[in-house]
Design a protein around this nucleic acid. Structure first.
Length: 994
RNA sequence: GGGCGAGUGGCGGAAUUGGUAUACGCGACGGACUUAAAAUCCGUUGACUGUAAUGGUCUUGAGGGUUCAAGUCCCUCCUCGCCCACCA
């Protein structure tokens, strides 16, 4: 009899499998396809750890199981090779990152092979291969060409240790997720991807895939969709308004009353004259009238409608004063008014000293109505040409901007502060507003009296780290600006404060503070003694997540309304006067895509003085990394590539003139955002993958990975894939049909495994110690449910090793048995049935456990089955040869996904020439499970008092009688009357007695 | 503060729709084999109790409830883990 020696059989079968290629996935095969994907590893210098082993063992078990069920399984593996750790390792060891990667990958590959994984290595690649990153660059350019990749100078997260910018997702609790360094803010020109444009799609798509709730919830939470409104709070200032009506108009016509109403509510001075001879106007006469009014000065905001425009321009020219702002609504300064007989043209020469007028106006806004039948669109272009300023295109309430509200006009006339709120129902309780210290309006609204205090506060806020600023336990701080806004709901004048509890990056960077219904505002109001007005009775809703049925109070005409209804009603009403609009905000920010490091994919863009950022043409891809000696990161926010002038200097693809390459590289999340697709066609040099192969393999059937990637890689790759789908690059809207996260393995004491604690267990050591890969795989899979975090120590391997030895021993005993022929001994029929029952019970359990990813219980079932077979062996010593042969074969097949080497070896020793791994998964036969008797638990008053064995088809009467007659039960029932008998067939009898 | 999940022997963990709690394994203890140890094999192993029986009582974080019957369902509370977090 051979001894069980995994050290001998494991390498033997690994070599054999590699030779026969049984794990190669076949493109376009007729069997149903199954893509089993596990996250590819980052090839660090440390080699694989126990977490890799857990993930890949699970993946391999599923891959092997599906293969035996008859699927065309693709179980691929590659390397996520770009990134900081390799670069750091290379710098430290004075080798190139390419060389370091070669060494590390070779080591990983060896270790992964020693686990006996059924990977199709022919499809392997590294993200740092130019053949691969050519397509990463090409795909980036698809984003760029679609306007989804853009450059912006923004304050980004900067890791001072790694000397690179980071995305929001890479910052955990204010620290870089990789090195735990406190993140700083740095103003840098960055490439960004517009992931925020896919916010809704990323939420909606989750409904179509099979993800556990905790993964879906985490992504939804991260995207952070908030439904609310933007509300304009007019700023109280020293503006003085002049409203000039148009031809045949008056201060009562069109939108002028809306303006005067707003001005009165603001309590600011305004002048809205009736111009002379409105039915037969002379522009010069009207302009002289305005100029002579004495109402024009440096605080003037002039609003002119239609013919009021030339009147205003001439009046400014005549008055010789500087005015603050000019708003022209459907204005013009040339002849050609399509709708009238133009009686005024004769009285006006249409000659302006535009040079002079332009210098007399601070700000010009030209409102152009797209539905205007009277004033041609070019009139506005002419005005901008002569006066400068900006054109605002919109569709008016009534053509030629003659509506009675015209909210767009109102918005552009009065300076206002935009806030975002999810609680517009509480607006009557908004007793102050708060700006983030970085808000762009701060410097223009702060009064001289408060400027010094405000500046001090802003400086202090900037000096604080994000960690400090986001510490919720910190006491509220803030400073008054001296300015006020008008609450548009009740026209109350409320103060503007600055405080760092308002964040610049979210919403509008400004809030309306409702201390009665928001904890933070309450804290602030209490500290600075600001008024608190309760406006919703029974309000349990501090944010949009809860929807209590509160009723409005202290809210004017809205009193008595349910607050959930008031949210809509109030916004709708405010929208009427241009003071609010519905708005959805997301916590998700655009993806900062630039890294200032060498070891990454160069961003394939060329900057030309004339043509700006130009995409590198497809035929010039890949833009390869230059081979250089020095590539250390700089502290300046500039990539080390910038110093390699030979590489940086190039020519513009558009004009051929000298130009410079983009020197930032991509984050290492880039290569991993599409790698699964490359496995479908790993060596294609014409496309990132052949569309036919993409169509054949489709979505990944099962993607297993780490929970820590939920809001990083998993979210990023879904975003890329959805974008690809929209651009007809991939056949499915979602990349992964099903996703699961495996649990974390902790050290035996329940703490995190870490280098510094020295409690890391190296899987290779365990394999080489003599236990072998099969025992290691079993011990990890047996440990706990696959998605549960659990402590692990190598002691468990001894247990699964024993199981394999027992499996080995029983099979060897059978092979070397002394009984030869004559397996049809007369008395073996009962044992034979027992053998088959034990095996088929095991087949049933293992199969259903595998279907539900119950790896640990699938192994327990096999152990129980084997224990039973050992007991049965004592009864017949392999007399029932045929039954034993089949039983052992089935047991080996059940073990095959878990212990591929041992099962293969024994399978072949039992006489098979083909691999067990291409054999067909055994099916359980229910007829073997039938038993002639059944044991029934008997309770008295709900307490277990005994059990009886009855025929499986015994009826209620027989069973209850048997239970009652059982000695123990009879003793319990003595002296009691049975009130009720509960009978559950095949399971239980319960006597209720007293 | 918000979201999600979990509390079962010394340990990892089992337990279809409520229906024999503690499967399977580790560890521990006892025994066989051995000069000895390892390995292997056999046995015991939730707690208390002791009338040693085919015994009794208790036991799934705590307390209450529903039910013939609760680890499982309901209510209240406690503890732990993960994710998010001054996101308006």
């Amino acid at each position: 009899m051979q001894r069980y020696n995994p050290k001998e059989i494991e390498p033997k079968w690994q070599a054999e499998w590699a030779k026969s290629g049984i794990y190669k996935a076949v493109d376009f095969d007729e069997r149903p396809k199954y893509v089993m994907l596990t996250e590819f590893p980052y090839p660090s210098g440390a080699g694989i750890h126990i977490g890799h082993t857990r993930e890949y063992t699970y993946g391999d078990i599923v891959a092997r199981y599906k293969r035996m069920l008859g699927h065309n399984v693709l179980f691929p593996m590659g390397y996520d090779a770009f990134g900081l750790p390799t670069e750091n390792y290379a710098i430290k060891n004075k080798v190139s990152p390419q060389q370091a990667t070669d060494v590390n990958v070779a080591n990983f590959q060896k270790q992964l092979e020693s686990l006996g994984l059924s990977i199709d290595w022919s499809r392997s690649f590294r993200t740092s291969d130019p053949d691969y990153y050519k397509w990463t660059q090409w795909l980036f350019l698809q984003f760029y060409k679609a306007g989804m990749a853009y450059q912006d100078e923004i304050a980004i997260n900067w890791c001072p240790h790694c000397k690179t910018g980071l995305s929001n997702e890479e910052v955990i609790n204010g620290r870089h997720e990789r090195c735990d360094t406190l993140v700083e803010k740095k103003l840098l020109k960055q490439w960004l991807l517009k992931i925020s444009e896919y916010a809704d799609r990323l939420i909606e798509g989750l409904k179509t895939v099979d993800y556990p709730a905790r993964i879906a919830d985490q992504q939804i939470n991260w995207i952070g969709r908030s439904i609310g409104a933007e509300v304009d709070f007019p700023i109280v200032n020293n503006d003085e308004y002049v409203f000039l009506h148009g031809f045949t108009g008056s201060p009562q016509s069109d939108f002028i009353p809306a303006l005067t109403a707003r001005a009165s509510s603001l309590g600011v001075p305004y002048y809205a004259p009736e111009l002379p001879n409105t039915q037969n106007p002379s522009v010069m006469e009207q302009a002289q009238f305005v100029a002579a009014s004495g109402k024009l000065n440096e605080n003037s905001v002039i609003v002119a409608h239609s013919l009021g425009a030339p009147v205003a321009l001439k009046a400014i020219e005549l008055s010789n004063v500087f005015i603050k702002k000019l708003v022209l609504a459907a204005g013009f300064a040339q002849p050609g008014f399509a709708d009238h007989e133009r009686p005024f043209e004769a009285t006006f020469d249409w000659q302006f000293n535009f040079e002079k007028v332009k210098n007399q106006i601070g700000e010009v806004i030209i409102l152009r109505d797209s539905t205007d039948p009277a004033v041609p669109a070019e009139r506005a272009d002419y005005l901008v040409e002569k006066l400068g300023g900006t054109i605002v295109d919109f569709a008016a309430e009534s053509p030629h901007i003659c509506g009675s509200h015209e909210p767009v006009v109102v918005q552009h006339v009065f300076a206002s502060l935009k806030v975002f709120t999810t609680r517009p129902d509480t607006i009557f309780g908004a007793t102050f507003v708060v700006l983030a210290p970085e808000h762009p309006l701060v410097s223009s609204i702060v009064t001289e009296e408060h400027r010094a205090a405000v500046n001090t506060y802003i400086k202090a806020a900037q000096a604080k780290s994000d960690i400090e600023r986001q510490d919720t336990d910190r006491e509220k701080t803030g400073v008054f600006t001296g300015s006020y806004v008008i609450n548009p709901a009740n026209n109350a004048k409320v103060p503007i404060w600055i405080a760092d509890y308002v964040l610049t990056g979210y919403g509008t960077g400004a809030i309306m503070a409702v201390p009665a219904h928001d904890d933070r505002d309450y804290e602030f109001a209490t500290k600075f003694d600001l008024p608190i007005i309760r406006t919703v009775k029974n309000d349990a809703a501090d944010d949009e997540h809860t929807h209590a049925d509160g009723v409005l109070i202290n809210s004017g005409k809205y009193d008595g309304l349910k607050n959930t209804d008031a949210k809509t009603t109030i916004v709708d009403d405010l929208a009427q006067i241009g003071a609010a609009s519905k708005k959805i905000n997301y916590r998700l920010r655009d993806w900062v895509f630039s890294r200032q490091h060498y070891w990454g994919e160069p961003i394939p863009i060329i900057h030309c003085a004339e043509h700006g950022a130009v995409a590198v043409p497809d035929d010039q891809l890949p833009v390869t990394l230059p081979a250089v000696d020095h590539y250390e990161p700089t502290d300046t926010g500039e990539s080390p590539l910038a110093a390699i002038t030979d590489w940086v200097n190039t020519t513009c693809p558009t004009c051929g003139k000298p130009a410079k390459r983009e020197t930032d590289t991509m984050p290492n999340w880039a290569g991993s955002s599409w790698y699964y697709l490359r496995y479908y066609d790993a060596h294609n040099d014409q496309a990132f993958a052949d569309p036919k192969k993409l169509a054949y393999w489709g979505a990944v059937d099962f993607y297993l990975g780490g929970m820590e990637h939920t809001t990083l890689h998993l979210l990023y790759s879904r975003f890329w894939h959805e974008f690809f789908y929209d651009h007809q690059l991939v056949p499915t809207p979602e990349p992964y049909a099903s996703r699961r996260g495996q649990g974390i393995i902790q050290a035996a004491d329940g703490t995190k495994m870490s280098k510094s604690k020295g409690n890391i267990v190296n899987p290779t050591d365990i394999i080489e110690s003599g236990y072998g890969a099969d025992a290691l795989r079993l011990s990890i899979a047996f440990l706990a449910p696959f998605d549960q975090t659990t402590p692990w120590g190598p002691e468990g391997v001894a247990g699964t090793h024993r199981f394999l030895q027992r499996l080995w021993g029983l099979t060897q005993d059978f092979i070397t048995r002394e009984t030869t022929a004559g397996g049809d001994a007369l008395d073996d029929s009962i044992v034979q049935a027992d053998i088959m029952q034990a095996v088929h019970k095991t087949i049933k359990r293992v199969t259903s456990d595998l279907d539900s990813l119950g790896f640990n219980t699938a192994i327990a079932a096999q152990m129980e089955g084997l224990n039973q077979l050992y007991k049965l062996r004592e009864q017949d010593e392999f007399a029932s040869i045929n039954a034993w042969q089949v039983a052992l074969e089935n047991m080996l097949q059940l073990a095959a996904p878990f212990a591929p080497h041992t099962s293969e070896e024994l399978w072949q020793q039992l006489g098979h020439e083909d691999s067990i791994h291409t054999s067909q998964w055994p099916k359980y036969d229910p007829t073997y499970l039938l038993s002639s008797t059944v044991t029934i638990a008997v309770q008295v008053n709900g307490k277990l008092r005994g059990e009886v064995t009855v025929a499986v088809d015994a009826d209620e009467q027989t069973t209850v009688a048997a239970a009652q007659n059982d000695a123990k039960i009879a003793a319990q029932l003595a002296g009691k009357t049975i009130q009720k008998t509960i009978y559950i067939p095949q399971k239980i009898v319960n006597f209720v007695a007293s």
